[in-house]
Nucleic acid binder design. Structure first.
Lengths: 67, 67
DNA sequence: TATAAAAGTAAAGTATACTTTACAAAAAGA
DNA sequence: TCTTTTTGTAAAGTATACTTTACTTTTATA
């Protein structure tokens, strides 16, 4: 699974720390998600999508290997 | 967070076991998600949404308490 | 009403999401 | 270049998603 959170942050010009604060998670959680170190819960994905005014599908995409 | 998986299953007339098989998780996992016992990962939510031809937002909805 | 299929539940175990603290590396700005 | 901000990383701990096995309850159907 890949995601475009880093790009969305760039568009809206906010830092990992700011996004973390808005989503009410730690900065390291945002960092790890951006780097693909782990996959967020649907709750967090929905929150992040809402913060960006995007859909979960726009932010997170299944890859072939995810079958 | 609430979800409409049970309704979608009814629309498409498939059992928890069948959905579990398609999503490659255990039947108990589907059951627990339907009953709100836990929130799936974004990976699983995307898979389920794709199986139903729906979006994650159509299946999973944030509630006021989820802040 | 008897039988089968589907759904609910429970417990014990494993995997992973997420937190906290702390520090290092990189990027940005003065 | 010096300083600050931002990002990356790591380790230890906690919470929770998910599995497996197995049994009970409910719902559908013959």
């Amino acid at each position: 699974m890949k995601n475009t959170i880093k790009v969305e942050r760039a568009k809206q010009n906010i830092t990992q720390a700011e996004l973390a604060e808005k989503a009410k998670v730690s900065r390291q959680t945002i960092n790890a998600i951006e780097l693909g170190k782990f996959i967020p819960s649907t709750l967090l994905a929905l929150k992040i999508a809402r913060i960006f005014g995007a859909t979960v599908e726009q932010l997170f995409e299944l890859e072939p290997g995810d079958e």
